[in-house]
Nucleic acid binder design. Structure first.
Length: 588
RNA sequence: GGGGGUGUAGUUCAGUUGGUUAGAACGCCUGCCUGUCACGCAGGAGGCCGCGAGUUCGAGUCUCGUCACUCCCGCCA
């Protein structure tokens, strides 16, 4: 018996043909006499029929069929009478009358039904992922993922990029995320690290003269998980020589254009708008602004720095900010709703959430109204575009707290106010990131992007004197409020690289031990180069409108980084540990 | 490391003020049924109430601890 068609192929034009289908029993309807089965494979559903008048022996055997049995069936395609056409099914005009039945395998009762509207908990689904993955809805996601990968390869191949593999067993580096370590048996007591990204290797490939490199590659970071973060994830990794920001961003734009076109048939408008990091924070509070709606933040620090309202005035005096956001027409928010929003901004360390409702007569209803002079009220009203029926929220604190709390509040309000069109895909480039920030815990500067990112040339002098005021040649691509890609122009000059390491507080011995091979390579004839990496999982997640990255990874891990299907990780045997010269010491 | 949520039948859930034998739907099993497509009808099986202590005459319900899953903060160059 050999498969002739899939469960989506057959239609009226095939009536009369003898066909062989192979797949799973999706649902059965046994009438005692005639038996109907919705027969499923990767491609779709076809109704197959066992009729005693057609073939008694096969019909008798078909009584034992149950959900998820695996069958091969041979039969004749017949047209359904007009009143029995199922218009909900792609193959609803026909059915297959079965003459020959092969039962390849039976199936026990499954822990949950194979249906699109899942009602099993995620833990149950992950423990039975092979079954979960039978759901057509999930299969669609992985088909989309495949198409996206193909689009990436086709596009980059067309642009002369070479796919070159880089090692997974590599060197642990300081800076950045916690490494996954792999013990070396041959070198007792020594460890490899799994790559957080192929960053240094792709730079070395540029130095080798490969000019244009890409890879769809797994990366590993041992950090805590989130709805959009897994310990292993996939990057579309790209690097180009002799290219500046515009060329790299151009390639990136061509790439997303191709992916969106091929996978969901959407046209992405290019060039994609660019805003600076500073502008993003000013207007939206976050460095990954959701551009599907307006709802901009307004800085009223200048207006309130001399106000009688000490909470605002003293914050500005200490170098903080007071910013406002106008939720148009939301003066109807209840006390409870405002309390909930206050609690929400508390997550981001905001100590409070001041508010003003504009009453019908245009006056302020607000616990803080009495602190402001009419002139101040007028200036604030103008700045925030206050109108009757609006509610304006204020946060006063240091810039980080103000921006993070109001930026996230902005996203929450947009959702609550239903300002988000779920069919929109709004891209934006964020550029001119600061080079460093100050790590309070470690009492040193740390790189915002990574230590190989080039500063702007005019800022070189500040490396030793004023590192916090250097901007880097880094850029992030943001889609619907999610960072889906990021890259930079790299340092290709040994001296500059050493000055950046020094600014990060690394001693010469430190950076020579950890990055000596890179520094040496930089003086061996390194071309100017730069690149970008996309988070493929996140991109697919947004493309397929999924709320969790786990839904776009075939075998994902739980929040505690365990695999419920295989029960990894697990303890190693004493023999394994001995071979690796390892000893496990557990805390109490 | 911290905060929130969830955990009862195979699955999704209900379960009153602490009170007799813990329910429903779907699924499963048996029988009947020749045009269904969420087939129908009749009957049936199925429970470590996450786990462990405690309070109580009595705990699914209250207290404490613990585990798992999940969302978030920190963390993630």
């Amino acid at each position: 018996m050999r498969r002739t068609h899939t469960c989506v192929d057959l239609s009226k034009k095939d009536v009369g043909q003898e066909v062989v289908l192979m797949g799973w029993v999706h649902r059965r309807r046994d009438h005692g006499g005639v038996i109907f089965i919705d027969f499923r494979d990767r491609y779709g559903l076809t109704q197959i029929v066992f009729n005693p008048e057609n073939n008694k022996e096969v019909h008798d055997r078909a009584h034992i069929l149950r959900n998820e049995f695996v069958l091969g069936v041979k039969g004749t395609v017949i047209a359904r009478p007009d009143d029995m056409i199922n218009s909900n099914m792609q193959t609803g005009e026909i059915e297959v009358m079965i003459d020959e039945l092969r039962i390849f395998n039976t199936a026990v009762t499954l822990p949950f039904q194979i249906e699109d509207n899942v009602d099993a908990s995620e833990a149950t689904r992950l423990s039975n992922r092979h079954i979960d993955l039978r759901r057509p809805e999930l299969q669609k996601t992985f088909i989309a993922r495949h198409k996206a990968s193909m689009a990436v390869r086709n596009y980059l191949d067309g642009q002369n990029f070479l796919d070159i593999e880089t090692p997974f067993l590599t060197k642990s580096t300081p800076e950045g995320a916690r490494d996954y370590l792999v013990p070396s048996r041959v070198n007792e007591g020594q460890f490899y690290a799994l790559p957080q990204s192929p960053q240094i290797f792709k730079q070395l490939l540029m130095i080798s003269g490969f000019d244009r490199y890409y890879q769809i590659v797994r990366c590993f970071r041992d950090e805590d998980l989130r709805a959009d973060r897994q310990p292993e994830f996939t990057q579309i990794d790209i690097e180009m020589s002799f290219a500046g920001e515009d060329e790299i961003m151009g390639v990136a734009e061509g790439l997303v254009k191709k992916v969106f076109k091929d996978v969901i048939g959407k046209e992405v408008q290019t060039p994609i708008n660019r805003i600076t990091y500073k502008e993003a924070l000013d207007k939206y509070g976050l460095d990954k602004p959701d551009m599907r709606f307006e709802l901009e933040l307004k800085d009223i620090s200048e207006i309130v720095k001399t106000t009688g309202f000490k909470v605002f005035a003293s914050v500005v005096e200490k170098g903080g900010l007071v910013k406002a956001i106008n939720a148009k027409g939301c003066a109807t928010f209840s006390r409870k709703e405002i309390d909930d929003l206050t609690e929400y901004v508390g997550i981001y360390k905001a100590k409070g959430l001041a508010w003003v409702k504009i009453k019908e007569d245009g006056s302020w209803q607000s616990p803080i109204a009495k602190f402001f002079t009419p002139e101040e009220q007028a200036l604030i009203a103008e700045k925030t575009d206050m109108e009757v029926g609006d509610i304006i929220f204020f946060v006063a604190d240091n810039p980080k707290v103000v921006n993070e709390s109001l930026g996230n509040l902005r996203n929450l309000l947009a959702e609550k106010m239903e300002l988000i069109d779920e069919d929109l895909f709004e891209f934006v480039w964020v550029t001119d990131f600061p080079m460093f920030d100050y790590d309070e815990h470690e009492k040193r500067y740390s790189a915002i992007h990574h230590p190989f990112t080039a500063p702007f040339e005019e800022d070189y002098d500040k490396l030793e004197t004023d590192p916090l005021n250097i901007n880097s040649r880094a850029y992030d691509l943001v889609l619907n409020g999610s960072e889906i890609g990021g890259g930079s122009i790299r340092i290709h000059d040994r001296a500059v690289q050493e000055r950046v390491f020094a600014a990060l507080g690394l001693t010469e011995d430190d950076y020579k031990e950890k990055f000596g091979f890179l520094i040496d390579a930089l003086e061996s004839g390194a071309p100017p180069h730069g690149g970008i990496a996309f988070g493929l999982d996140r991109l697919i997640m947004i493309l397929c409108k999924q709320s969790s990255i786990r839904d776009v990874i075939a075998f994902p891990k739980t929040q505690k980084a365990s695999c419920l299907l295989t029960a990894a990780p697990s303890f190693a045997s004493t023999d394994q540990l001995d071979e690796l010269s390892l000893k496990v010491v557990l805390d109490d």
